[in-house]
């Protein structure tokens, strides 16, 4: 891979719990190019923490260490908070797992998207408004003019996710981290959103980190997949070769998927090996 957009080496995140220190991320390493990198993994395995560490948005209690965590021109471990403020949203966008709680509850969703545009570009209010409305349409919001004036608590689960996607795309970041960003969308709308992201990767060279539980989506949409289990990467695969996974956790995932045409009385469950 020629000159990655982002390099992560030996990322470790720990918390001081009542029962002693707890390592939520235990040595994660990867490079991100102008590609769609999927991250799949166990619930609680450290996917969201990894995404937040890249943005330097881990909770205060978290201790973050790494050998390398950098953009080509910025060391994210050393950068000042002021530098980070310029990077967040503008160069790296993060779509959080709980979109409705990352939005400002007292500002209409349209205004929030317009504001994000204004902060990161030299433009005026009317241009920002036009851009925000266009973004709402691009993410398949029905009746975008009316929704523009609505507030986060008035959004359905899937509308909230799309507002967040619109807000992160409007400032055209170089890297986008999408944390379960399409889980509340019906399949037809989801495919439209994926097409939009795919276009950005192909035409603008966006680097996309796509955290998802949806194996079918990852298999068809991403270029590569990291499989995470208990704080580390247990396997890296070409997305199209997910079926050839060898790690027992990944195999277990593939088996546990409910299928439309292969009914089973019970779904197989994993026997988790402490050695994984």
């Amino acid at each position: 891979m020629n000159s990655p957009l982002l390099s992560v080496r030996d990322l470790r995140i720990s918390f001081n719990g009542v029962a002693g220190p707890f390592e939520a991320v235990r040595g994660v390493s990867f490079d991100l190019g102008r590609e769609k990198l999927g991250i799949v993994g166990e619930s609680g395995s450290g996917k969201s923490m990894t995404g937040r560490a890249i943005m330097r948005l881990t909770p205060r209690a978290a201790m973050v260490k790494a050998q390398t965590l950098c953009l080509p021109d910025v060391d994210l471990l050393q950068a000042s908070e002021k530098t980070m403020e310029r990077i967040r949203g503008k160069r790296i966008g993060l779509i959080m797992q709980d979109p409705k709680y990352s939005l400002n509850p007292v500002v209409s969703v349209g205004e929030q998207i317009a504001e994000a545009y204004l902060i990161h570009t030299r433009s005026n209010a009317s241009e920002a408004k036009r851009k925000a409305a266009a973004m709402l349409e691009a993410v398949q919001i029905r009746d975008p003019e009316r929704v523009y004036r609505m507030y986060p608590h008035e959004m359905s689960g899937g509308m909230g996710q799309r507002i967040m996607i619109a807000m992160m795309l409007v400032s055209e970041p170089e890297i986008l981290i999408a944390d379960e960003a399409t889980s509340a969308l019906d399949v037809t709308v989801r495919l439209e959103i994926l097409n939009l992201l795919d276009d950005l990767v192909r035409k603008r060279g966006l680097g996309l980190i796509f955290i998802s539980h949806d194996l079918n989506l990852v298999r068809h949409f991403c270029d590569r997949v990291l499989i995470m289990y208990r704080g580390h990467v247990v396997e890296t695969l070409k997305a199209g070769e997910l079926d050839q996974a060898t790690h027992p956790y990944t195999r277990g995932l593939l088996d546990a998927m409910p299928r439309i045409h292969t009914p089973r009385r019970r779904l197989p469950v994993l026997k988790r090996d402490p050695a994984w």
């Binding site: 379960e180 889980s183 779904l267 469950v269």
Partner: peptide
């Protein structure tokens, strides 16, 4: 149940769906 397993990996989802059954 409103999307009760949307944030779960499929192995945990399988456990929850089996539990419900």
């Amino acid at each position: 149940l409103d999307e009760p397993t949307s944030a779960l990996d499929v192995s945990v989802q399988a456990e929850i769906l089996n539990l419900l059954c």
